[in-house]
């Protein structure tokens, strides 16, 4: 479990942007794994299974929070200080921008850059065509690039 807990927790955390909800989702996922241990065929299958169930639970939790909006401490506006490339705040800015993406493209970005999965693997996890995954990636990157440029953080 320890081998996979950061993967499961981080997928939920980057998607939901709330530690408490992410830990709840992760806990549910591991309890579900325990109930389905008989169906797991190999360590690779366990990783795939955990990612798939985490993605589903995170989407469910996201939908539930949409019906009853909550504001995580992580999302409370910080003072608008100038941010330079290489500044530790750039990472936080990027996480915030990713959090503004719609559910599916947000999860595609998280699976691509947190888990380093290729579009084919992401498509299999999310049950969507590879072309859709690639399109989400391209659009999201373009969107983020545009927003960063407007903040003066584009490529120099």
């Amino acid at each position: 479990m320890r081998a996979h807990q950061s993967m499961v927790f981080s997928l939920a955390y980057h998607f939901l942007r709330d530690r408490e909800s992410a830990e709840e989702v992760a806990q549910e996922v591991f309890l579900s794994l325990h109930r389905n241990l008989g169906a797991i065929q190999s360590p690779a299958h366990a990783a795939f299974w955990l990612r798939k169930v985490t993605v589903q639970r995170a989407f469910d939790e996201g939908r539930r929070r949409k019906r009853r909006p909550q504001v995580a401490l992580e999302d409370i506006a910080e003072p608008a200080a100038a941010v330079d490339r290489g500044d530790p705040l750039l990472g936080e800015t990027l996480r915030r921008l990713v959090a503004t993406l719609a559910g599916a493209p947000r999860m595609v970005m998280i699976l691509r850059y947190q888990e380093d999965l290729d579009p084919m693997e992401i498509a299999e996890l999310l049950d969507m065509p590879v072309a859709t995954v690639k399109s989400h990636l391209q659009r999201s990157l373009a969107l983020l690039r545009g927003k960063l440029e407007r903040r003066g953080l584009g490529e120099r």
Binding site: M1, R2, Q5, S6, M7, F9, S10, Y13, H14, R19, A22, E23, A26, Q27, F30, L31, R85, L90, G91, E92, L94, R95, V98, M109, I110, Y113, Q114, D116, L141, L144, R145, L148, E155
Partner: peptide, 26 residues
């Protein structure tokens, strides 16, 4: 550079130290 920054921004994070213990408790 953007993809590199995203990789760093979205790196894996650890849950609370007692997480595994809580799951075992459940």
């Amino acid at each position: 550079w953007l993809e590199q920054e995203l990789r760093e921004a979205l790196n894996r994070k650890d849950p609370a130290p007692d997480f595994a213990e809580r799951v075992r408790g459940s």
